[in-house]
Simulated assay, not measured.
Amino acid sequence: MFKASIMAAVIAALPAVTVAQANLTAETTSPGSTPHYIDTTLAAVLESAGVASLQITEGATLTNSVQAVAEGQLDMAPAPLILPFLMSRGIGPYSGVGEEKGAELAGNLRALFFTAASAQIFGHYDSGAITDITQLDGLRIWNGPPRGAALTSGRAAVQLLSGLTEGEGYEGIQSPWPDTVSSITGGGADGWTIPEGLPSGRQIAISAAGAITIYDMPSDLLNSELGQQIMNAPGHAVYSVPVDEYRAAYEGNDITIVTDDDTFDSFATAFAQIVPASMDDELAYQVTKAFLEGQERFETGSPRGPYLFLSFGDIDGTSQGVCGAVKMLMHPGAIRAYEDAGHTVADCVRP
């Protein structure tokens, strides 16, 4: 009887062993950014659920992080969707990898969930040289880190606003993410264009050095042929927030918001939370399940919560920006978690 009781206890303990807390490594962007908030909140959610301990390295260049996940050297990272697209072709920051190896690496990536919370903005100090954001000739514009998705989007934004290309009509200023605020507040740029969540701690920090103005992408330019090309480019998604809500998010700071209508419109940087395709199915399921069950924590843990545009519902592929030029498959464990939660998942994201 005693032996039988021990055996029963061992058998009862087996399910707990299969879902024992894992130790996972992750990289994310600098504090104050939307990916940083999402990743640190996810870490808290996973810890609370007993699913995983997520060890996060901050201030990473996501170009490198995406490759590290693809190579199996890192368990998780937020990926601007333009990066897997470029990797799959061995171009841009992955030109040194080559097309064949790039396609192989991109094929090793899987998504757990998606977000499009970082919209491209343009800003400048009110006391600076800029009085018209369409006239940027000869000025110094901070347009991103030294390489990667944000730099691509930043250059596109300046071209849309002014028709200028970097090195010809204006001087592009780049610095690593951790140095962004100091680069701008130190007088190194006349203006800046950055993909930002709402509200952005980075913009609040910049405004502490003097009054600033933030602009969306003007409607006539956004609706132009070039604007639509940029809006529909790989890695971008539509972003629109009522301007009153946008202004309210920065209330109390020396920040003016300028739009040409009643909404703040721009192109968002579409992201996927990526893991290696080889991640254990049950682990991917438990991580995604905890993410979905943590919706309230994501949405109420920060003023930016309501504007994360995280994929807590059905996955249609189009809204997430992954069923067109960008191909990003979901992990089977993540798909199971979504379906168990009652959500539909489009065929185009299934492995």
Rank of each mutant, 00 (worst) to 15 (best):
Q286D: 11
D265C: 09
H36F: 14
M328T: 04
E100S: 15
G32D: 12
L54T: 05
D261L: 00
G138S: 12
H343F: 14
A284C: 05
Q320S: 09
H343P: 05
T134V: 01
Y285A: 01
E58P: 11
Y285M: 03
I173G: 03
D280K: 02
G324T: 01
Y215H: 12
L62A: 10
A290T: 05
G90R: 01
V17Y: 04
A116E: 12
L283A: 05
G342D: 05
I173F: 02
M328Y: 09
G128D: 14
H124N: 11
T300H: 06
H343I: 00
F312K: 04
G294N: 07
T213A: 01
G72I: 00
A9M: 13
R140K: 15
P332V: 04
E58N: 15
S65T: 02
V10R: 12
E299V: 03
G227A: 10
G96M: 02
L81P: 07
T18D: 07
S88V: 01
P35F: 00
P93V: 11
Y170L: 04
M328K: 07
K3I: 11
N64D: 15
V326K: 00
W192E: 00
L14E: 13
G98E: 04
D137Q: 14
G252I: 08
G72D: 04
P276D: 04
E168I: 14
F113Y: 15
L329M: 13
I230W: 06
A209S: 15
P199F: 12
E171G: 02
W142G: 02
P351I: 07
P306V: 03
V181R: 03
D39C: 15
H124T: 04
I212F: 10
A272L: 07
M1C: 07
S88I: 03
Y170N: 06
A149R: 03
T300N: 09
Q67H: 08
T131D: 14
L42A: 01
L226K: 06
F291N: 05
P242M: 09
Y37N: 05
L160A: 07
Y215C: 00
I206E: 04
D265S: 15
A268V: 01
